[in-house]
Simulated scan of single mutants.
Amino acid sequence: MVGKLSKEQTKRHNRACELVDSDSELTETEREFVLDHFHESAHTGRTLDGAFFTPAELAGELHLVIPGNRIIDLCAGIGRLAWHARDLVTRHFEHLPPREIVCMEKNPEYVRVGRRILPEATWICADVLDVPGMNLGPFDCAISNPPFGRIKHSGNTPGYRGPLFEFHVIAVAQTLARRGAFIIPRESAPFRIEGGFVDQDSPAYERFHRETGITLRPNPGSPPTFSATSGATPHRPSKSSCTTATKTSWRPRPNRPPAPSSRRTSEPSGRGPLLPPRPRPYRTPGSGKTRTPCSEIA
């Protein structure tokens, strides 16, 4: 059943489904067509699970802060973040081998579609909260645009006992990777975007930081490093849940007293505030809520 789609969107969604169901290997153009036109809202109940696929523009911005050769995409959907994380053009010109990408997704239909879009990735159909016990080995970077808010989940993750699903995913990622890049709700980030990155109070984030030792920070461009140790501080991306989203990347560091808060993050050279490209907020389909890109976890 297709709902809330225009006639043209429905037509393209149906064509995407035909490509997925075909027996032939898809071309790069056909794979991208499926990625662009397969709608999560076309299947009853999908949006009830908090599933909203990442817009291409936001995924394209996030991929700029993904380092390393071995990447895991948690709550991968049909693979939008993983698609951009391949970074094919840059790696071709820098004579680097293709990245090894693992996609973890709970919804079997999304996994089926994702395997047609990214057959070169390893797809695992499983609950993200079960990942720490799977012995998948270390990754250079974990990425995710997870369902956010009070999503029903099967248990808690290391250290965090709160209700917000995006923080459970970040806690899982810390057990897997040295670095990370995520999209989380603006309300879950300790900063917002106003020309540059500006500190803001977030009770939800403060609880998460208190329970896990993970610190979120904006990363306006360069990939952060992250050494995962217990009580470490990672940097990750943030997306905005019902309002504005932000993109973040992260890295954990040993526990230390928080630095004095400055109203605006400045460059080490003292040349003034960091001014990343102004992110363009986007509206979450069907929710009336807006998101924006964000940056780091320390």
Rank of each mutant, 00 (worst) to 15 (best):
K4V: 02
S6K: 05
R12W: 08
H13Y: 09
N14L: 15
R15S: 07
R15T: 08
S24E: 14
E28N: 08
V34R: 01
H37I: 10
H39I: 00
A42E: 02
T44S: 12
T47V: 06
A59D: 01
V65S: 12
P67F: 07
I71S: 00
A76K: 03
G77S: 08
A82N: 08
W83F: 15
T90E: 11
R91T: 07
V102S: 01
E105M: 02
E109R: 12
R112W: 02
V113M: 00
G114V: 12
I117A: 06
T122S: 14
I124W: 05
C125F: 05
V131I: 14
M134Q: 12
N135W: 07
N135T: 07
D140W: 12
D140T: 04
I143A: 04
I143G: 03
S144V: 01
P146C: 03
P147Y: 05
F148Q: 07
I151D: 03
H153N: 10
G155T: 10
N156A: 08
N156K: 10
Y160I: 04
A171F: 06
Q174F: 04
A177H: 04
A181C: 14
S188R: 03
F191L: 09
I193F: 15
I193Y: 15
G195D: 10
Q200D: 03
Q200Y: 04
D201N: 12
D201C: 08
Y205V: 02
E206D: 14
T215V: 09
R217S: 13
T229N: 04
S230D: 13
A232L: 11
S238G: 11
R251T: 09
R256F: 12
A259M: 10
R263G: 13
S266Q: 11
L274Y: 15
L274K: 11
P276S: 04
R278W: 06
P279T: 04
R280E: 13
Y282M: 11
R283V: 10
S287V: 13
A298M: 09
